[in-house]
Every structure is written in C-alpha cells, then in structure tokens.
Nucleic acid binder design. Sequence first.
DNA 1: CTACAAGCTCAACTTAACTTGAGGTCAAGG
DNA 2: CCTTGACCTCAAGTTAAGTTGAGCTTGTAG
Lengths: 148, 148
Amino acid sequence: MAPVTELTVGQVAARSGVAVSALHFYEARGLIRSHRTSGNQRRYGRDVLRRVAIIRIAQEVGITLAEIGVALESLPEGRTPTREDWNLLSTAWRDSLDQKISQLKKLRDGLTDCIGCGCMSIDKCPLRNKGDRLAGEGTGARRLLVER
Amino acid sequence: MAPVTELTVGQVAARSGVAVSALHFYEARGLIRSHRTSGNQRRYGRDVLRRVAIIRIAQEVGITLAEIGVALESLPEGRTPTREDWNLLSTAWRDSLDQKISQLKKLRDGLTDCIGCGCMSIDKCPLRNKGDRLAGEGTGARRLLVER
DNA sequence: CTACAAGCTCAACTTAACTTGAGGTCAAGG
DNA sequence: CCTTGACCTCAAGTTAAGTTGAGCTTGTAG
C-alpha cells in the first residue's frame, strides 16, 4: 500500500471518481498541483481530494473551470489553507452560489408561477431577462454541460 | 410594424435577445419551428417567444439543449402552451432542478463548514471527510456528487 | 529478472452550442 | 431600376472540457 500522506494519480482518480486524464487536465489548467517523484511521476497531497471535490461539485451546477480556477487561486500554494484563506474563498463564492440557488428555485417555482400567470407577455414573465449577462460576450459555446 | 400574429427571425431575435444564428440553430435542432413565406423566409407564431424564453432560462441553470428538447416535445406545436402543458413540463424538470439546488447547497454549506472548522486539520474538514469516507466505503468511484 | 500494470508526454479527436463568412435571394424606399 | 438591408443555405471556425491513442518509461509482483 502506498503511504497515507501521498497519493498517485491513479489513487486520486479512484478516490475522487475523476479520470486520470481529467486530473492531468486540471493540473495543466492550474486547478490542482502535484510534485514529481525521481521517476517523474505525480504525487499529490491529500488536499487535492478536497480540491477535486469542490471542482466537481461546482461544475455540476454549471460553474466553469475558469471561474473555479479564479476562486481556487485565492488558496495558498505551499501551505495549508488557514481560516482566513477559506473565508475569502467561501465568501467569494457564497454570493454567487446563493444567487444561483435562488435562480434555480425561481425556475422550479417559476414554472408553477407561469402556470398561474400564463406568461401571456414574455416581457412580463419574472423569469425572463434574469440573466442576460451571457448574451453579450464572447463567441462559441458559453456553457458546457456537466451532466454525468 | 409587422402584424402581431407573425414574426420574422429578426423580430424574434430582437424580442428574445437571442441571435438570429441561434434561432436557426434551435430550429435545426427541432426546438422551435417556423413556416416559410413564398419567398422562403421564416415566419414564427407567437408561441416561439415563450419557447425561446424557456430554452434560455433552462440553459441558465445548466440544462442542456437535448434535455430541453425532450421536455419541449411535450409542448403542443403551433399554439401557446396551456396550463396543462406547463404542468407537464414543470414536473418533468422539477426533479433535476431540486437535485441541482441540493448540490449547490452542499457546495455552499461545505465551504461554510470549512470556515467553521477553519480547516486547520485536514482530517476535520467535513468536505474532505465526506469524500474520503465515500471513497473508502467500498466499490470504486463514489463521489460527493449526488448520484443520478 | 522479467512481465506487465501504471505513469508520462503530446497531439489529435470529440461534443455542445453557437458564430462567422461566403455567396446568393427578396422586399421596400428613392 | 437600383440600392440597401434583412433573409437564406451551407461550410467551417471557436470554446470548454475532456478523451483517446501512440510511443516510451517506471515500478512491482511473482
């Protein structure tokens, strides 16, 4: 058995449920870090499991890797995250998470509402024009699916 | 102004905030429909506005076009959805919406918990422990994410 | 000490959801 | 009639987030 303190890429893959190739990919994107053995193999600290968990959960709900990366950047590189580090990361996210939650609830309940209101006018529908920020920017796909 | 009963692509684009090319795309995917004038131009019924609104709102929260397409198939062609149609659509999505909401809460509360524990000890972090317990608990890749 | 499983790199392929561009048509104003 | 702008089709490009495969190295169980 491998030591408890260091994990191989395969072990991280098994424990996190993420493919090895995806872990390579996350590392290339700077979302996770590893150091190498003398034989050039990756070794991960145990905090990588938590990071990967955060990444996957965030993706599930439609947060992009870019956004996740920005948030994770606030975590320290070398040392164990302090209370203050987590505080920054969490508060940075909590607003958008709360907002996303309320949007989802609105959609869920909004469909019911729309039954009530009939949505005769699209302009009056409370759901519409809620998040038109996506409409403005960039080319290509704005959102990827995260279904699994 | 054009008559209230029929809309050109440009009008639909303007009113819905969706690019003309995206409307073409949705039509090719069977999400919306149109008929053609003698000059081969698209004309849309007013129900297309509501359909497009649904499509965009659903996308906002990470529902794929494929899923949306399946749901929209339950809607009638050509006429504006009735209360009963909405009911069907709403219940079809409710489960997946509820699931996404619970995942968001899990992420948000996980981070909040980490503030509470300060994550001074990695073993005490509830987020890490959760993932670790699941991973150690048996067969292969179990993740923090809610199973589908 | 030798299989062979697990790792490594790098390039190319994939899917979703569009956008962009080229090349051509149609409708209305001047 | 002519121009201008809105439409049309179809092909190719783009982005995100990975996956797949080839070719080569490392580590370990028997």
